[in-house]
Design a protein around this nucleic acid. Structure first.
Lengths: 176, 176
DNA sequence: AAAGATTGATATCTCAATCTTT
DNA sequence: AAAGATTGAGATATCAATCTTT
């Protein structure tokens, strides 16, 4: 764990982060604000799908029969249930998804991609992937990708409250 | 399409990203969804400020006289102007910020942190910083921080470069 | 006309009920 | 009662005007 933290800055905020950490944190916040906007613009302009529509469609399309329980979909997207419910209503209105009853559990509800939804996704994918690749992965080497993956995993496991009571050092290497 | 990218998966989406890239990209999207929610919850529960309020107040508090032009603030936050305008209206209603005329440019408008805004921020900072540190920076070493910073910088410069066609190589080293 | 900023209409998100089934 | 899901109301975000000053 971090014992000595050097280079504390004077400003009112963010004390107890080092300069390097602060600097990265600012950048992270900026990325969080700008990357989704850029992806949404490209997607929406070229395919009519919002980034949210796209993510929903990806999850559904990847599932065995193009259908998923609402709760599972919400978990996969890390969305609130009610948000998903509202969003599915809108997507349904546009013919991108449909609903079905759940056989084994009367409380449950299934969402299905329509043919139209599949087609919309297929049309949207190539340009979107190109955008992601050029924006995010251009000239990234294995070591960097490894470090980023380790970082993401560490944060996610902490969010889950997962077995990280013991601050486990993150792997930096890529290849394994 | 692209050059030869190995390990292509079968699913309909995200072709032309390697498995490792895809896997990281999913994690990144999840982080983007969950980290802000977690930070917002902590902040709002313990201080009454939203994450957005917090970011606005940080920028203002860090500026020379606690005041900033609306446009500069919007740039610093990577927000649309209209979004900021609406948000400042709400924050103004709660007494966190005030407005002033701009001397040298009649079109411009200044935002100022109120004393109340400063106090609210000061109350919120310690727990927030602790949360960020424990969630994001716990057990991160210098190499990892360097890789992350290089990554963030690369993506940001591509975003600024506008054209996604220009893929400038990313620096891997930490301390520029 | 262009830049700075605000406004209003609409879309989306969040939070607290609500409803049904287990 | 608890889990799965939806609903409605209020908060926030986005997009296209609008208004003023340069």
């Amino acid at each position: 764990m971090s014992t000595t933290r050097y280079h504390r800055t004077v400003s009112t905020d963010l004390d107890s982060l080092t300069d390097a950490e602060q600097s990265f944190w600012r950048q992270w916040l900026t990325l969080n604000a700008r990357v989704p906007v850029a992806l949404h613009r490209q997607l929406h302009d070229e395919s009519g799908l919002s980034l949210q529509d796209f993510e929903v469609l990806v999850q559904l399309t990847e599932s065995p029969d193009g259908r998923l329980r609402v709760s599972d979909l919400a978990n996969a997207l890390s969305w609130e249930r009610s948000r998903l419910s509202h969003h599915l209503g809108r997507m349904g209105g546009r013919g991108l998804v449909d609903r079905e009853e759940c056989e084994d559990d009367g409380r449950g509800s299934l969402v299905v991609v329509t043919q139209e939804g599949r087609q919309a996704l297929q049309r949207a994918v190539p340009a979107h992937v190109r955008t992601v690749r050029d924006l995010v992965f251009a000239s990234m080497d294995d070591a960097q990708l490894g470090a980023l993956t380790a970082f993401a995993q560490a944060v996610l496991s902490r969010l889950d409250g997962g077995g990280l009571g013991t601050a486990e050092p993150a792997r930096t290497a890529a290849g394994d």
